Simulated assay, not measured.
Amino acid sequence: MKNNKTRTLCEAAIFIAMAEILSFIKLYEFPNGGSVTLEMLPIILFAVRYGCGWGAGAGFVFGTVTYLIGNKFSIDWTTIICDYFLAFTALGFGAGLLARRKWSVFYGTVIGGVLRFLAHYIIGAVVWGKYMPDEFFGMTMTSPWFYSLLYNGSYMLPSIILCLVVFAALYKPLKKYFTAEDLKLAQ
């Protein structure tokens, strides 16, 4: 049992480090935070291997590390809590809900990605909405909820799709890792 916990903690550290590295490789970055990256990929993979408890923990640690050493963008304590701690904890929790199943990486990407989006969406409307521009994507902005939907959706949706594409490309050769079959063999 102790070896299993040690292995899990070591994998968590490796996956969190990989996620942090991927967070610096940005395909596109928005001016007020949020970017299209593959940073969710390792957290999702870890969560689908070990479940929602471990996944939420890894997401929380990743959010903390990202805030402390990453490109942080916040205006007060609520944005720090929601955009970093809560959003990535929700990602790991949601991704781990259907752990160790045949299509877990795909379900986990969608569920975890949507939960992460919801955290960004709510704080975006409640706090960031005060700084809403008059015009965004060529549309007149009148509602902070609509602005938050557009802003956060414009980087979260491509990030979710990008993760799904990478998982689809790697599914066949890495299936035993995506379904955690290798963990069953190690016991």
Score class of each variant (00 low, 15 high):
residue 172 K to M: 12
residue 64 T to A: 11
residue 141 M to T: 01
residue 122 I to M: 09
residue 138 G to I: 08
residue 150 L to M: 10
residue 17 A to Y: 14
residue 134 D to V: 14
residue 105 V to K: 01
residue 145 W to I: 03
residue 167 F to L: 05
residue 114 V to I: 11
residue 174 L to E: 07
residue 177 Y to H: 14
residue 179 T to N: 06
residue 153 G to C: 09
residue 44 I to S: 06
residue 130 K to N: 14
residue 60 F to E: 03
residue 124 G to F: 01
residue 65 V to G: 04
residue 66 T to S: 15
residue 112 G to M: 03
residue 112 G to D: 05
residue 181 E to T: 12
residue 71 N to T: 14
residue 70 G to K: 00
residue 160 I to W: 03
residue 23 S to F: 05
residue 28 Y to N: 09
residue 94 G to C: 00
residue 101 R to T: 09
residue 70 G to T: 02
residue 118 L to Y: 08
residue 185 L to G: 15
residue 92 G to E: 00
residue 31 P to N: 13
residue 61 V to H: 01
residue 94 G to H: 01
residue 182 D to E: 11
residue 28 Y to F: 14
residue 173 P to F: 11
residue 81 I to N: 07
residue 78 T to N: 15
residue 151 Y to F: 07
residue 18 M to W: 11
residue 25 I to S: 07
residue 67 Y to W: 09
residue 119 A to H: 03
residue 172 K to C: 13
residue 143 S to K: 04
residue 13 A to C: 09
residue 18 M to L: 13
residue 76 D to A: 06
residue 111 I to P: 02
residue 101 R to C: 05
residue 62 F to G: 00
residue 11 E to P: 01
residue 143 S to A: 10
residue 120 H to S: 05
residue 154 S to L: 08
residue 64 T to W: 06
residue 115 L to H: 08
residue 44 I to K: 04
residue 109 T to W: 00
residue 135 E to A: 13
residue 136 F to G: 03
residue 26 K to P: 05
residue 112 G to N: 07
residue 10 C to A: 13
residue 32 N to D: 12
residue 170 L to T: 04
residue 44 I to N: 02
residue 161 I to Y: 10
residue 45 L to Y: 05
residue 22 L to N: 04
residue 119 A to S: 11
residue 167 F to R: 00
residue 82 C to M: 14
residue 97 L to M: 05
residue 40 M to I: 01
residue 45 L to Q: 04
residue 107 Y to F: 15
residue 133 P to W: 02
residue 123 I to K: 08
residue 17 A to R: 10
residue 36 V to I: 13
residue 122 I to P: 05
residue 25 I to E: 10
residue 86 L to V: 14
residue 104 S to C: 12
residue 53 G to T: 12
residue 93 F to W: 04
residue 182 D to R: 09
residue 79 T to L: 08
residue 27 L to D: 06
residue 170 L to W: 08
residue 71 N to E: 14
residue 103 W to A: 11
residue 125 A to Y: 00
residue 130 K to V: 15
residue 73 F to A: 15
residue 121 Y to E: 07
residue 186 A to F: 13
residue 167 F to E: 02
residue 138 G to P: 06
residue 37 T to W: 01
residue 132 M to Y: 01
residue 91 L to K: 00
residue 118 L to Q: 09
residue 74 S to Q: 12
residue 104 S to N: 05
residue 125 A to C: 11
residue 127 V to C: 10
residue 13 A to V: 07
residue 24 F to Y: 12
residue 17 A to W: 13
residue 128 W to E: 02
residue 80 I to A: 03
